[in-house]
């Protein structure tokens, strides 16, 4: 494949499966197929690496603290709820 082309059907088929590959959700044969392909295809290798890093970064997105005022308000709302769940 010309290095400036990336329209190979096999690339497109594997491109669809990169997330499943990274999530270990593919069968062994397909995994080996992807591994073999990315060794030979630079654009697909780059796609795989950038996707992997995107997932890693997304996992670092972090959490905000709950605002104290809201936490207090929520606590009060819970305390004010009927002491037994409503009858159904």
């Amino acid at each position: 494949m010309n290095k400036n082309e990336h329209d190979h059907r096999h690339c497109l088929e594997l491109f669809e499966k990169l997330s499943e590959y990274l999530d270990n959700e593919l069968d062994e044969v397909t995994c080996r197929d992807i591994e073999k392909h990315v060794k030979e295809c630079v654009p697909c290798f780059v796609c795989l690496q950038t996707l992997k890093r995107t997932i890693d970064l997304c996992k670092q997105a972090g959490n905000r603290s709950v605002p104290e005022d809201f936490s207090k308000k929520l606590k009060e709302a819970i305390q004010n709820m009927p002491k037994s769940p409503p009858a159904r």
């Binding site: 400036n4 654009p43 796609c47 690496q49 950038t50 970064l57 670092q60 972090g62």
Partner: peptide, 29 residues
């Protein structure tokens, strides 16, 4: 799906190959 000469990547960019802690920043988050 990267298509065409301009979009097809030819090398892994730094942000995807440097250690994660070298890439992470508050601005990035």
């Amino acid at each position: 799906y990267p298509q065409g000469e301009a979009e097809v990547p030819q090398q892994v960019p730094d942000w995807a190959q440097l250690p994660l802690d070298k890439v992470l920043s508050n601005e990035l988050l």
